[in-house]
Design a binder for these strands. Sequence first.
RNA 1: GGGCCCGUAGCUCAGCUGGCAGAGCACCUGCCUUUUAAGCAGGGAGUCGAUGGUUCGAAUCCAUCCGGGCUCACCA
Length: 515
Amino acid sequence: MNTEVQQEGEIFTQRREKLEQIRALGFDPYPHKYAFTHTLTRTVEQFSSRTAQELEAQPIPLRVCGRILTIRRHGKASFLDLYDGNRKLQIYVKKDVVGDRLWSLFELLDNGDVLGVEGALFRTKMGELTVRTDVLTLLAKALLPWPFGKFQKKKEGEGPEEVWYSSLADVEARYRQRYLDLVVNRDSREVFLLRSKVVRQIRRFLDEREYIEVETPMMQARAGGALARPFVTHHNALDMDLYLRIAPELYLKRLVVGGLERVYEINRNFRNEGISTQHNPEFTMLEFYQAYSDYRDLMELTESLLTEVADQVLGKREVQFNGHRISFDHWQRFSLVEAIGKFWGGPAPAPTPADLGTREGVGSALERAQVPYDHAASRGELLGKLFESVVERQLIQPTFIYDYPVELSPLSKTRDEDPAFVERFELYIGGLEIANAYSELNDPEEQRERFEQQAAARARGDEEAHVMDENYVTALRYGMPPAAGEGIGIDRLTMVLTDRHSIRDVIFFPHLRPE
RNA sequence: GGGCCCGUAGCUCAGCUGGCAGAGCACCUGCCUUUUAAGCAGGGAGUCGAUGGUUCGAAUCCAUCCGGGCUCACCA
């Protein structure tokens, strides 16, 4: 949309003239506060069962406020609807009652204006709960028109009986002018209210288990803890480049070394990579660490956590996502190698664990699945590639995939039975990667070697390889208790719980303009 | 970055085999003191994303650019 054209437009000019007329009448179009007695939502919910007779016998005086949705003018008496983003309430304004001066003000009101109304409840002939206005107060004049659409009575069922349908459909406008979207698209508001509840329930769950919430640096001298390209910024006084963090992991584990045995952080990570319906350059991650535990404990914890979140936030354990019915009562677990065989979609027969035991075997499976791959890559890297292309999108029901190749996991502890693999799992729901967790590598010398291998990969041109972090190795040399840690993508989890298919629909202000 | 699609009134869109720029909602004026998608009567509103080209004539055809959506690749 072109904001300049809109602001030079006819409606804007008309409304500015009305604003001047309002001032000329002696009203402040932008007063400081309004002492309401009831929210619109509370008014509707509390008094919706009162009959006309009850309201007449026992008048309920109140002051309410909200945004004007529509005005139905009838000469010397009019109706308007106020809206608080949740419920709307009808207001009746009668010239005889409010007097000439307030009536003149009323005549200068438009939809979108924020209004306070003092009066008493009654029911109209048609039975609608309505405030009969004694005093009306303009609380904020809207100079630009709101894209309110039509409204429609909802049929039988849950939720408010009326639903407003927005005429704001343009996707870019919905993101750029989220404030409009939040008011006119009821669904949008509900997504963000639900997201807030998800975060609150996660905090409650972890707090109940003796976790403490912490904050670690967003700007780091080395961007570690994940395999991704960072954003670079510059500190002028120190004259040094700093990186926006790609993960808080290495700092959280330093805290575990420091005796904070259960820590979590819910905060932003920044990754300088592609933008898609599943990726925003900044995204919110829950990351938590639990000492004296391994990744299997975290699988249990994750099941409990997400089941409780579903219970508390949705009130049920089933959710519709992308045309699938997802149940938080049925959790599956497969090793990565197992999953490749089970979900194999290429020509029969599916590769067996033995087939996948060699680099050549994995390479031939990739060829049969017609997946192009780097022939210089190691077996573990090829396994990861094969898993992503063959299995990932098929993981609709909550599924843990465990035991990842060591090459892909420089911070994870290897399995005792097979050091080519690490104790790591990822959780998939609805085809989305929701969580990533592992038993933390706490052997400082092995960690140092892993970093060196990553440094070698980086030297070969892999920009996403992990950087060496001597300082972190030093922390491990003081002895980190055995621990397991996990990251859960809050944005993606919200997508699943709200049936949104773009990450932009669960972030208030998503990044919009790619290069 | 590749592929496909889109950009016309404040909003949602039609018009696109070239020939006076349209509809609904919103807005303005008038009437209307229990309406509720209020009603009735009248009216205003556009750099057709931008630039260049073809043409007697371009919203329409061509090229380039800008912005957006979906999708593939990389990533969580």
